[in-house]
């Protein structure tokens, strides 16, 4: 067993997910199977191989760093589940 229930709970905490007990066991089982499968990569010696940073052998086109096409704040906050004219509203963070 590569993954314990405790590890699944730690990962869920890091990812801000809450899992019920059945989900923990199911995820533990699935993660264990998937990590068991990907283990096959260790068959390959990659000590001299550089990791891929970009798939194509081309340079990224550059552009001037100019402010353009700014969206109105009112339209941007419109999608927030709770908002007023200019802000997204969340539960109080500072007492």
């Amino acid at each position: 067993m590569r993954i314990s229930a405790e590890t699944v709970l730690e990962l869920a905490d890091l990812a801000r997910l809450r899992l019920d007990p059945e989900e923990v066991e199911r995820m533990r089982r699935d993660l264990d199977a998937i990590l068991g499968y990907v283990e096959k990569l260790s068959e390959l010696d990659t000590t001299q191989v550089p990791p891929t940073a970009h798939v194509l052998d081309i340079s990224t086109p550059l552009r001037l760093d100019r402010v353009a096409g700014v969206l109105p704040v009112k339209e941007v906050v419109r999608n927030a589940p709770q908002h007023d004219e200019s802000s997204m509203i969340v539960p109080k963070v500072i007492e």
Binding site: T7, L11, L17, L31, L35, L44, T46, P51, T52
Partner: peptide, 28 residues
């Protein structure tokens, strides 16, 4: 959720080199 949990695992300290970096090397 499954993919977020696994992604969090392979990027976490102590596992990054063994999983994520390794995968980017095999990608090469």
């Amino acid at each position: 959720k499954r993919r977020i949990l696994l992604g969090t695992f392979v990027l976490s300290a102590g596992y990054y080199d063994a999983y994520y970096r390794k995968a980017q090397q095999v990608r090469t």
